[in-house]
């Protein structure tokens, strides 16, 4: 059963963990880009895999401001209004 980690531990590693994850994904044909697994993040930071997983999960949620969720519908409707379905705009 996963245990919650301390805020101290989380705050110490939070900013280091996110850049290692799949939060930003890069694709270049033929190149092996991918985010690190929890086990790999753990090895990189010198913590256990369980701790790495907890930091990642909390950081994934915390990294996005709640306002982005409130504003998303408005953004989508605005985009929708400016894009004809199926037209390339080219």
């Amino acid at each position: 059963m996963p245990q919650p980690i301390s805020a101290d531990l989380y705050n110490r590693y939070r900013d280091l963990v996110l850049p290692l994850t799949n939060a930003t994904q890069r694709y270049e044909p033929g190149m092996p880009h991918r985010g690190l697994t929890d086990a790999e993040i753990a090895a990189e930071l010198g913590v256990t895999e369980a701790v790495a997983r907890e930091i990642r999960c909390v950081a994934e949620l915390e990294s996005v401001d709640i306002a982005c969720y409130f504003e998303a519908d408005g953004w989508k409707e605005a985009r929708f209004g400016g894009a004809e379905p199926g037209e390339t705009g080219g």
Binding site: T24, S63, V64, C68
Partner: peptide, 11 residues
């Protein structure tokens, strides 16, 4: 190349 910000896509 293509870069995708999954964290920004989530909301």
């Amino acid at each position: 190349w293509m870069e995708y910000r999954q964290d920004l896509c989530f909301p």
